[in-house]
């Protein structure tokens, strides 16, 4: 049977990042693995250690409800995990008022994450917009750790303006190992663009980024506003990347995350169950 019941988690800590966004650190109150025989309240109901990059969890803010968020760090052996959360609606606004130590709930991990077997050792272009960089954090870290001499990884990160940029620390860390292009939709007159920064959208930099590759990019990972991803995918196909090597992480409203409530439909599929990662080919 599917479980609708969250495991209790403690809100351990948070730090601000960018405009109205925070890195939250949570800890599972009980980290014993679930078993059929032992289903009391001291046992985790979900298989947290199985979390893969790009998968998500349902955060339960009691008195408000549940919403889907991705892991920036999946649960470790102590049951600690992190998520980057932007204050947007009722649930996140309430979350932002909660003190450290509060008990909340979480269910997961859910969905189909990034296709690791198709990404491994490939030349990869990553295009992310705004909060869309969050589901890629964990993956980029592990790709950098395992980068081979002949492999190239390039990231284009777009944000509306300088204040809206997220994950600055991470991007600075990655910059030591991979090429990163940053785009800003809006800049004010006084602002001077720094190296690898340009005004516009990520789409404006795709050609430049692709030209960076010594051997052509063969795989693309996209996450951000759907309209941006769709345009980027078309552009990448035009540049010779196969549609089944372009992967998009799709966002949808969700109430169950287990393929029942219907809210996250995408044609005949459910994003929670069949996604959130889809190849561009699957979406045609």
């Amino acid at each position: 049977m599917l479980s609708h019941i969250p495991d209790a988690i403690e809100l351990v800590d948070y730090i601000d990042d960018g405009e109205q966004a925070r890195h939250y650190q949570f800890r599972l109150v009980n980290i014993n693995k679930p078993s059929e025989k032992n289903t009391n309240n001291n046992t985790a109901k979900h298989h947290w250690q199985d979390a893969q990059p790009g998968q998500f969890f349902m955060l339960n803010v009691p008195s408000i409800g549940e919403a889907a968020f991705t892991f920036t760090e999946p649960p470790n052996e102590q049951g600690e995990f992190r998520a980057l959360i932007r204050q947007m609606g009722k649930l996140t606004t309430t979350l932002f008022t909660l003190p450290k130590g509060d008990i909340l709930g979480a269910r997961g991990p859910f969905g189909r994450g990034w296709p690791l077997e198709k990404i491994n050792k490939k030349n990869i272009i990553i295009i992310a917009g705004g909060c869309g960089l969050a589901p890629l954090v964990n993956l980029i870290d592990s790709l950098i750790d395992n980068l081979t001499a002949s492999q190239q990884l390039v990231l284009i990160y777009g944000a509306q303006n300088k204040q809206a940029q997220l994950l600055t620390t991470e991007r600075e860390r990655w910059q030591q190992h991979i090429k990163i292009y940053n785009s800003l939709d809006e800049i004010n007159d006084q602002y001077t663009l720094v190296e690898n920064e340009s005004q516009g959208t990520p789409l404006d930099i795709v050609d430049i980024a692709l030209a960076t590759f010594i051997k052509p990019a063969t795989t693309a990972l996209l996450c951000g506003p759907e309209i941006m991803m769709n345009s980027a995918a078309k552009k990448l196909v035009d540049n010779g990347i196969a549609s089944d090597d372009i992967f998009l992480a799709i966002e949808r409203r969700m109430h169950c995350a287990i393929g029942l409530c219907g809210h996250c439909y995408l044609n005949e599929r459910y994003v929670c169950k069949n996604g959130p990662t889809f190849s561009w080919q699957e979406l045609q």
Partner: peptide, 25 residues
């Protein structure tokens, strides 16, 4: 005590897929 309920919804409602960001597919 906080109770979580589910209730019949309709995919024909304008807000059925509307997200917190107001993006509505």
């Amino acid at each position: 005590v906080i109770t979580q309920q589910r209730f019949w919804d309709s995919c024909l409602y304008e807000g059925f897929q509307r997200e917190a960001s107001f993006h509505n597919p």
